[in-house]
């Protein structure tokens, strides 16, 4: 077992884990932050996307020990402590960008990374291209794309 410490959603956390523990397991099983999901085992689906030091990463392809001293944000860390939703979360609801909800946390975390890299004025083609690392089986992506376009704009307005 090995000790690991990091900041998750602004809180310092520690754990004692087997070195083979993936970040996603640490989040889900040790910290009980179950909003980060596992949808595949080959780094394809993006259900596990979190922000690692501000940058989107797949928590299923990252060891917990690689995150020693890092700062992690998960879907649970997006809304304000008072409960006000992040504009991107709000946009997914407003535009029906989710059905079963399983891919949704990863989609939202990925969407925020698209905004980080490309700004708030996104066109459909860019969004579709940049969603390459996220798979949704329910929505046909149509409303996810609309949600991200709108959420990005609303983030700028905020």
């Amino acid at each position: 077992m090995a000790a690991v410490s990091m900041t998750v959603n602004g809180k310092a956390v520690t754990g004692d884990v087997e070195p083979r523990t993936l970040l996603v397991q640490f989040l889900r099983e040790n910290l009980r932050l179950t909003g980060t999901h596992v949808g595949c085992d080959t780094s394809q689906c993006g259900a596990c996307i979190i922000h690692l030091d501000g940058i989107a990463a797949k928590a299923c392809t990252t060891l917990a020990l690689q995150c020693e001293g890092s700062s992690i944000t998960t879907i649970e860390g997006l809304a304000e402590p008072g409960g006000a939703l992040h504009p991107m979360q709000e946009a997914f609801r407003e535009h029906h960008g989710l059905q079963c909800g399983y891919c949704t946390p990863g989609m939202i975390m990925s969407a925020l990374d698209i905004v980080r890299r490309n700004g708030n004025d996104l066109d459909e083609h860019l969004i579709r291209d940049q969603l390459d690392g996220n798979i949704c089986r329910c929505t046909g992506y149509h409303n996810i794309v609309k949600a991200i376009e709108s959420g990005a704009k609303n983030m700028a307005a905020k």
Partner: peptide
């Protein structure tokens, strides 16, 4: 939707 978009 609220529970899904907040990871709950």
């Amino acid at each position: 939707d609220f529970r899904f978009i907040t990871g709950q």
